[in-house]
Simulated scan of single mutants.
Amino acid sequence: MFTIEHEFDATVVTLVDEGSTPLQEDVVINSFEECITVEQYDARTDSMQKITLSIAQMRDLVAAVNLPEGLYRREE
C-alpha cells in the first residue's frame, strides 16, 4: 500500500509494508524540485535514517529497475 500527498514544496509518497512478517517500517519519499529524499525509521538507533538523491540519480534508479545486469549510461 502507498499514499501520495502534494504539499507546498514537495510530493510525498509513503510506502507501507503489508507483507508477511517481519514487516519493515514505512518508507517516506519526498520529491522536491532539486532532489529526492528517502527516509525510514531505524528502531536500533531510535532515529530516522535519510538519504538524498539528485534528480539524475532518481532517473537512473527508475530506469534501472527493469534492466538486466550491466553498466549503463542514460542519454539526455
Rank of each mutant, 00 (worst) to 15 (best):
M1C: 05
F2A: 12
T3G: 06
T3F: 10
T3E: 10
I4D: 07
I4N: 15
I4C: 08
I4R: 12
H6G: 02
H6S: 11
E7P: 00
E7G: 01
F8W: 03
A10E: 12
A10D: 01
T11M: 14
V12D: 00
V13W: 04
V13Q: 04
T14F: 03
V16P: 01
V16I: 11
V16Y: 15
D17G: 04
D17H: 04
D17Y: 05
E18A: 06
E18Y: 06
G19S: 07
S20Q: 12
T21S: 03
T21V: 04
P22D: 09
L23E: 03
L23G: 03
Q24T: 08
Q24S: 13
E25L: 07
V27M: 08
V28G: 01
N30M: 05
S31Q: 04
S31V: 05
S31Y: 09
F32V: 01
F32R: 08
F32A: 05
F32T: 08
E33I: 04
E33K: 05
E33V: 06
E33W: 05
C35M: 09
C35W: 00
I36V: 15
I36R: 02
I36H: 01
I36Q: 02
V38G: 00
E39G: 09
Q40D: 04
Y41L: 06
Y41M: 08
D42G: 06
D42S: 12
A43K: 13
A43N: 12
D46P: 11
D46Q: 14
S47C: 10
S47N: 10
K50S: 08
K50M: 15
K50G: 03
I51V: 15
I51N: 02
T52M: 15
T52H: 00
T52G: 02
L53F: 09
S54R: 08
S54L: 10
S54Q: 11
I55Q: 11
I55P: 01
I55R: 07
I55E: 09
A56I: 14
R59M: 14
D60L: 09
D60Q: 14
V62H: 09
A63R: 09
A64V: 06
V65P: 00
V65A: 15
V65H: 02
V65S: 11
N66G: 14
N66E: 03
Y72C: 07
R73A: 13
R73D: 10
E75L: 14
